[in-house]
Nucleic acid binder design. Structure first.
Lengths: 193, 193
DNA sequence: CGTCTATTTGAATGTACTCAAAAGCGGTGG
DNA sequence: CCACCGCTTTTGAGTACATTCAAATAGACG
């Protein structure tokens, strides 16, 4: 089994070598090149993905044609449109590789099988979903309580590996501000020092 | 077992009457009067709650002393600080009754017991957490793509039962705007008609 | 080297906030 | 029963933060 995935799982639950081996058989490897899509709005999300290397952005396009980034995913992160994948309904989201990337994919029927055959997998995803929910709740509160500059600084401090892979345009669309304003924030910070 | 809780569970998983009965024994009933707290920042969240009747707000207080509402909960909703409850760490959140309310409480050790003795309960909470996560993700995207007025209208249209129980001050603190501005939005909408 | 995209900058604009004051509303006690 | 008190809501004037638009500059890539 892929060592990165194994360590990722072990952070949340304990699986025997046999269970890990079995779970591993449900995944296939895929390479996605820069600018290509794992998912486009309108499609059903067929896979949940675990990122081995590279970088992705998950975003939606609103009625004015603006892109809004929900989150980024780099090595060791999970990736999917949960709603579309779980309920097999058309997605509202796009998932795009920002650089040449490699991922592990599990489809819906294999995931259901995993839940049945390895009950601890259900726990794994419950725990991971909880953690993701907690981070999303924190983000909602921060969007309301922090200034744009503070949110910019928070992102740099907490996601330095991501910050280094993305443009200001993409960061702006994650923070919910314009890229011109990101540029002005950067200037202001530079002047302070 | 409480009929409301039973129906709530049945929307996500199938439990036998015996399983429902057993799960029910893990809960106790509690009345919380208007303005009283189920949880205050600094405390460990001891219970997960299911609201039978009444209304609650979950909020944090930021460094400037402003209250930011994470969500409201009325009849048929679940309520907790997931991070604090799951990891038994001090909470950053307040949970306050906005009117005289009645809730069912389950503590951490009973919840762990439920996971062990009724594995489908693990699935129940995985599914509920997923749905909550999806709604939080939608909220993040909407906060970036909709204007304040649109978010106000969205809330009224989608949570009419909550809207009717809360003040503009509380709604404003959920939407991430000032209550004065909510008032101005209302005037603008009234003039349109 | 040329093209495409990202970044920076400035001026004008707009959305939402702050502060202060008035008006409305609901509950409570005399 | 009504007068009062506390809290909510409204309103307006002035202000601040962030956007829009346009143009110049810088950087990355084939």
């Amino acid at each position: 089994m892929n060592e990165l995935l194994k360590q990722n799982i072990k952070r949340h639950i304990n699986l025997s070598e046999d269970e890990l081996k079995m779970f591993n058989t449900y995944f296939k490897t895929k390479v996605i090149h820069k600018k290509n899509y794992l998912l486009k709005a309108g499609e059903v999300c067929k896979y949940e993905a675990f990122v081995i290397k590279g970088c992705f952005r998950v975003f939606s396009i609103d009625k004015n044609g603006n892109e809004n980034v929900l989150y980024f995913a780099i090595s060791d992160w999970w990736l999917s449109d949960i709603d579309s994948f779980t309920n097999q309904i058309p997605s509202q989201l796009f998932i795009q590789a920002l650089e040449d990337s490699e991922i592990l994919l599990i489809n819906k029927s294999n995931k259901v099988k995993a839940y049945q055959e390895i009950p601890k997998i259900e726990r794994l995803f419950r725990i991971m979903t909880q953690k993701f929910l907690v981070s999303n709740q924190r983000r909602i509160l921060q969007n309301h309580s922090l200034t744009s500059e503070e949110r910019y600084q928070y992102f740099l401090a907490n996601y330095p590996q991501i910050a280094q892979k993305i443009t200001n345009i993409q960061l702006a669309s994650y923070l919910g501000i314009t890229h011109e304003f990101v540029s002005k924030i950067r200037r202001k910070i530079a002047q302070k020092k």
